[in-house]
Design a protein around this nucleic acid. Structure first.
Lengths: 231, 231
DNA sequence: CGTACAATGTCATGGCATTGTCATATAATT
DNA sequence: AATTATATGACAATGCCATGACATTGTACG
């Protein structure tokens, strides 16, 4: 099905270029020049993804993103930030705003399309599958609840995302960098070792429910999730 | 296996810094001060990725990138552009060149490495088959599992890679140095006799599952893998 | 406004599997 | 039997991973 992308960008030339690139890649597009316009559009329609310029006259892109993340109905809308050279600041970059990815201008059309598809891939399975079931494990995306044999697990947001990704790809081995890409997102730069730590925390929770073996270490390669059989 | 990065940058200080950062991150590097030098290097060697300064004396980085994209053999070489703040005026130009990523100077070493790895992951997709089947043997690269008659074998990372190579090339004889090249990788220096030891370890595991004969010694030449017929 | 707590990222440490090498035994070839 | 090639067992070095502790940041709550 054709996905809809909302473009928010004040420079008319770039906006038109974005429209062209995305329509070429078989997306349908909505366009706004300002954050205010974007909000009007969002009041009526829900696109599958938003490409948002960092700097906008009036309400900035950063500010818009922040506001949207507070609205439950738009919280899940994936955002790709556009920044121009020099606007970057180590602190501002990344998850702080809750963007799923960001790109610096200038960028190649190919890359833009690739990143959009990557983000959609990462975020859209949820919509198709609000309920993931793997053996004794059950993960409810909407309610944000993870259970083993109907017992609720107390996990952090990140642990939840990790489990979600694992349950979408059972039995497959993922390297630490793959996990960082897929779970943390491309816009964050964290140490690979950090993955170990979160796996450990997750294992600890799982162990309390007798599923110590669910996440396996594949030495030299990464980690794998295999759900114990239902009982 | 170690990847090679070609660095093209006219400022000697920055070049040296790049070399240091990348070697630290276990890349091997090639360096050029000018686009001309870069072309000479590219005539002989094909790196896995190029980090290219936007502005260069003589032929500029933009121009070099454009030329390379026209050569079929170098078309696929991933490029990360380096730009200084303030050089970003021409946004549209970047769209045409087809660089895979951009970085603004100054940048953090961590980010550079992360971006290089991200680009490499994106551009070198797994061209290996996810499932290899040879008689009773089955090797799943996704799940990272090796089985004989559906019984899982417990093998080390290196043994797994060895088996993967053998199963991709059944019934062929390989010399020890060929195996070292293909399985260990070119950049490592290891005694040829070491291959013997690993063959032995592998045989031991296979013997536990009744496949003692799967790896055969070809005296004076090397080793060959032949899968016993399915049963 | 400050305190407390939860979440996350990073580091140092120690243990253990993996790996490379060698010395020696065994097998094949002449 | 002598020579060469391979197999085997033992050992040391290395590298990878689990773990605990700590710093930082964000957030809820008084």
């Amino acid at each position: 099905m054709q996905k809809t992308i909302l473009l928010v960008e004040d420079e008319e030339a770039i906006l038109e270029m974005l429209e062209m690139i995305l329509q070429q890649a078989d997306f349908s597009t909505l366009s706004a020049n300002t954050a205010e316009q974007a909000q009007e559009i969002l009041a009526e329609k829900t696109p599958d993804l938003m490409v948002l310029d960092w700097m906008l006259p009036g309400i900035s892109g950063v500010e818009l993103a922040r506001r949207l993340k507070k609205k439950p109905e738009l919280k899940k809308l994936p955002i790709i930030m556009l920044t121009a050279r020099g606007e970057e600041d180590d602190k501002v970059r990344g998850l702080e705003i809750g963007a799923d990815d960001y790109m610096t201008k200038p960028f190649s059309p190919k890359e833009l399309v690739a990143r959009i598809q990557a983000v959609l891939r990462r975020t859209s399975p949820n919509n198709n599958q609000p309920l993931l079931q793997q053996g004794v494990f059950q993960l409810n995306t909407d309610k944000h609840i993870l259970t083993i044999n109907n017992q609720i697990l107390d996990v952090s947001p990140l642990e939840f995302k990790l489990m979600q990704f694992f349950m979408q790809n059972p039995d497959k081995v993922f390297s630490r960098s793959q996990l960082l890409d897929q779970v943390w997102g491309r816009s964050v730069y964290v140490e690979e070792r950090t993955v170990d730590v979160h796996i450990r925390r997750l294992r600890k929770v799982l162990a309390e429910h007798g599923c110590k073996e669910a996440i396996q270490t594949v030495r030299g390669f990464g980690y794998r999730f295999s759900a114990p059989a239902d009982q």
